[in-house]
């Protein structure tokens, strides 16, 4: 199963999103959180993100959902630090955090491929909230 890593500036963002996801998928997906710095400041930590990507990777790849700013650059550094083949099967989804995370988690729970999971997250970008 494709793993999901949620990267946010504070654990509250990622943990709240994980609560929403769990309502729909239960515990049956692989999801890791890399949020905040080790000394509990707001921010992101590339080393922590790299650890979580490794943990979420069971061989089918990992899609990372990021909030903003440093979370993107920190995740890029984390992915660059991985060795092959792990590096090629980790990717950032260019997607809104909550919607992207939920779409990715659903797709992953269906046993879809990493590309499908990434696409599902990115397809939420244009979703209209008001009809």
């Amino acid at each position: 199963m494709v793993g999901i890593v949620l990267v946010s500036h504070t654990p509250k963002i990622a943990e709240g999103t994980w609560e929403l996801i769990r309502q729909m998928t239960g515990e049956k997906i692989i999801l890791e959180i890399a949020a905040g710095t080790r000394d509990r400041r707001l921010g992101t930590d590339p080393v922590l993100i790299e650890e979580k990507i490794r943990k979420a990777d069971t061989g089918d790849g990992v899609v990372v959902i990021v909030d903003l700013g440093s979370s993107i650059m920190s995740t890029e550094i984390a992915i660059e630090s991985l060795e092959e083949p792990e590096r090629s099967r980790a990717a950032i989804a260019d997607a809104p955090f909550v919607e992207g995370a939920i779409a990715a988690a659903m797709e992953a729970s269906f046993g879809k491929s990493m590309q499908d999971v990434k696409n599902a997250a990115e397809n939420t970008r244009g979703m209209k909230k008001i009809a």
Binding site: T37, G43, T44, P46, V47, G69, S70, M73, S74
Partner: peptide, 13 residues
């Protein structure tokens, strides 16, 4: 990279 926390970490790192 591993201690700054904000965007300046990845950038200056």
């Amino acid at each position: 990279v591993s201690t700054v926390g904000g965007a300046s970490g990845p950038l200056y790192g």
